[in-house]
Structures are given as C-alpha cells and as structure tokens.
Design a protein around this nucleic acid. Structure first.
Length: 415
DNA sequence: AGTCCACAGGAAGGGCAGGCGA
DNA sequence: TCGCCTGCCCTTCCTGTGGACT
C-alpha cells in the first residue's frame, strides 16, 4: 500500500514537471521583472541621475567629492539610480586608464551584515579583503584598521549607505561623525558618503556636527505618477513577458494600483510578476485584470506570513495572545476586538505557562507589541481611559484569510 | 484643582554567547 | 586560560501622560 501511494505521488510529480515543460510560459526573462534589475536606461529619473553624476564627476579627475543625502519614499528609484551612476562612473574611469575610484554599496538594514557599528566597519574592511572576526575586537581597533587600509589604498572611495536611517535608529550618528572625520587625517585618500533614506526628516535628527558635514549635497526622489509607472512597467514587460502574455490594460491597472501606494515602482513590478505567476498556474495564456487583484492579496498575505514565521518565539506568543482574544462571532467571522496591553499580557503569560516557556516582564512584552506594530502585523494607539489608566488599544491589521492563515501557522507551536 | 490609574517608554545595567589577543 | 570586547535580550527603575473621578 505504502509502495503504491509512493509510486502514485512520484508519477504525479513527474506529470507536473513534464506538463510544465510542455506548456508555453508567459515569461520570457523573469529576471528583468525583478526590482533590482538594472535596465539600460532608467526612465523618468534623468534629472536625479544628472544631479548625482555631476556631484561625483570630480572623482574622475582625482578630486574629492561631496557627501550626499538622497531622500525619497520606497520604490522611487533611489537605490537603482545610485547603482546606475556608480556603474557608469566606473566605466568612465576605465577610459581614463586610472584606477583610483572605489565604490562600495552597503545596505544598513541587512540583518547581521551592517546593522551595527561593528558590523558596518567589518563589512567595509571586507571590501578591502581584510579579514575581520564577526565579533570580538574593540570598535576603535576596527576604525584604526579601516584608517590604515584607506591610507594605503590611495583611493577615492564612494561609500553608499542605503537605508542609513535604520542604522542611525539603532546606534545613533557617531559612526557618521567618525567616518566623515577620517578624511581630516587622510592624505592621499578620501571617502565620500552617499546616504540613502526614506525618511525626509532624517537630516534634522542628526547632531549639528554630522549634519553640516553630511548635507553638502541633497537629492530628492519624488514618487512616480501612474503614467510614469506605466512607462516603467511597459519597458520591463516587453523584456520580461512574451508578446501575447500581457496587455496595456493590465499594465495600466498595475501602475494605477501602485501609484495609489505612494508611486512605488517596486510594488508595481511585484504585482506584475505575481499576476503572471497566478495566470500561469491557472493555465491562462495571458494575464487578466483579475490576476492583478489576486496578486495584490497574495503579496500582502505572503509578506505577513513570512514576517510572522521568522519572529522569535516570544513575539509569536504575544501575537498568538492577541489573535486568541480577537474573538470570532457566531458565524465564525473575526470581530474587531480592541485589546489592551494588560489583557494581552495576561493571556500571553497563560500561553507561556501552558507550554513551559519563560514569561517575560510586561515592560518587555510592551516592546514586543511595539515591534509587531512596526511590522504592520497589528496596529496600536495609545488611549487614556481616565482614572482607569493610560494604555494601548491593539487591533490585528490583517484581512480574514490572512488572519486564519497566521493563526494556523502559530497555533501549532503553542498547543 | 488634585488624585488616581495603568500603563508608555527612556535609561541603565545584568547576563550570556561568541570571539580575540596575551 | 583569562580578561576584554561586542551584540543581543532582557530586567529594573524611574518619570511622564491624560482623562475620569472626587
């Protein structure tokens, strides 16, 4: 019996794969639809590219370049335009037969890569082939080694710190002060910092000393409108999909949806790819507007499920306590139950005791609730209930399907 | 106007693991 | 092996908050 079942499922799998191979795919080159793909020409960002190029151009003649702050919301092309300019700067340098410009790109939000001062420095040293342990050395030793490497390299270094605000939130602005100060002691080398951030008010948060040295130049990336997004999507779709797979109507719908969300091109591309996948799995020969709607739901659900899945167990226990108390009504539908921190903590403590987990303090649980709020899994706001105290009202911010999926994902871990 | 409640949230520091150099 | 350093998770202590109640 077991053998029969195994044989049947194996032949099914074989069928799935052979059917997939026989079927004509809607995609021609999926890579071109990924937001990090760099096209030959970046649309609707000529002005910003020109600004950045002119700021960095002096490096070609061996002169120092200014520090730059680049602002703009998610998916406005900050990162790709910066990488695009870097790439062309290096190409232009090749023609001069010099090799003095070194460009380094670091995403400060990358967990365990550059999310602390130590890791940022370690990452910078690794760019110069310097071996640094993951932990153990004093930070000033790393600064010392970094200084020596810069001094010996005799390079004009352009350091791009993407999502710089994330690092600032975690460790303050001392690292920026130290990095900009290194130049005063360097003779033949120079380091220029390009800080990329979503936070328009980021500059105001910095210490006056850092602000004055960092804000030599500023570039603001405005959100794309629906027409611009449509152009961008058409450019990618022509490369990514077969000629019959996608229509202008579908592209326009994607663009319109993404334009509603602050002109986010990354979101627009994700919608397009997932819609293509949905259409393909359903056996369609082209993408329809309903596939875009399905893609929108799928992206949101996948994001939340993945976020929940990678949370530490204590955070999951807090979330489980919130979900358990978001009662279902008689028809089985979720009710918008407004919970208070105290109720959540009580239920959380019960869950922990029930499965032999350590019960954290209410102070710590309060921080975990804040973290869940920042991840947009729940939403909270502080309310004052007069003599009955000041607390937070907590609601789950997911649709019913997602909530059910999240519940079944974490329930098994605490039952 | 003063009191009270139930927290929010900042600051400081403890304890642990992992790693380094002497 | 020991002392020191870092990151991380956590606790403890404290002040602040704002609207209902007295």
């Amino acid at each position: 019996m077991v053998g029969l079942v195994a044989k049947t499922s194996f032949s099914n799998i074989e069928n799935y794969f052979s059917q997939y191979l026989e079927k004509q795919s809607l995609f021609k080159n999926k890579n071109t639809l990924i937001s990090t793909f760099m096209p030959d020409r970046i649309l609707h960002r000529d002005e910003e590219i020109q600004q950045l190029s002119l700021i960095l151009a002096p490096a070609l003649k061996g002169f120092h370049t200014s520090n730059v702050f680049i602002y703009g919301k998610c998916g406005t092309g900050k990162t790709i335009c910066t990488k695009y300019v870097m790439k062309h700067l290096k190409e232009a340098e090749k023609k001069t037969n010099k090799n003095t410009i070194k460009t380094i790109y670091i995403n400060c939000k990358m967990k365990r890569v550059a999310d602390t001062e130590y890791r940022l420095l370690a990452q910078l040293l690794k760019e110069f082939n310097e071996n640094v342990p993951d932990t153990g050395l004093p930070t000033d030793v790393l600064y010392g080694r970094f200084f020596d490497v810069l001094h010996n390299s005799k390079n004009n270094i352009i350091l791009v710190l993407d999502e710089i605000d994330a690092l600032y939130t975690k460790i303050g602005d001392n690292f920026l002060y130290n990095l900009t100060r290194i130049n005063t002691d360097l003779k033949d080398s120079h380091i220029a910092i390009i800080g990329i951030t979503n936070d328009i008010s980021f500059k105001e948060k910095l210490d006056a000393r850092v602000r004055s040295s960092m804000s030599e130049e500023e570039i603001i990336f405005r959100p794309y409108d629906a027409v611009q997004l449509k152009d961008i999507l058409m450019q990618r779709a022509e490369k990514g999909f077969t000629s019959t797979a996608i229509s202008e109507e579908v592209v326009a719908k994607c663009a319109a949806l993404a334009a509603q969300e602050h002109g986010d091109a990354r979101r627009a591309l994700d919608l397009l790819v997932v819609a293509g996948e949905v259409a393909e799995r359903q056996g369609n020969t082209h993408i329809l507007p309903e596939h875009i709607e399905a893609a929108e739901q799928k992206i949101d659900m996948d994001r939340i499920l993945e976020t929940v899945r990678i949370q530490p167990k204590q955070s999951q226990a807090v979330l489980f306590s919130i979900i358990k108390q978001s009662k279902k009504d008689s028809s089985g539908k979720w009710v918008d139950g407004r919970l208070l921190t105290g109720n959540v903590f009580e239920e959380y403590a019960k869950i922990c005791r029930g499965c032999g987990m350590k019960v954290l303090t209410q102070r710590r649980v309060s921080d975990l609730i804040t973290e869940l709020d920042m991840l947009s899994i729940i939403s909270t706001h502080v309310v004052s209930k007069g003599r009955y105290g000041r607390t937070r009202e907590i609601t789950v911010s997911m649709d019913e399907n997602t909530l059910n999926s999240v519940e079944s994902l974490i329930a098994s871990r605490f039952c």
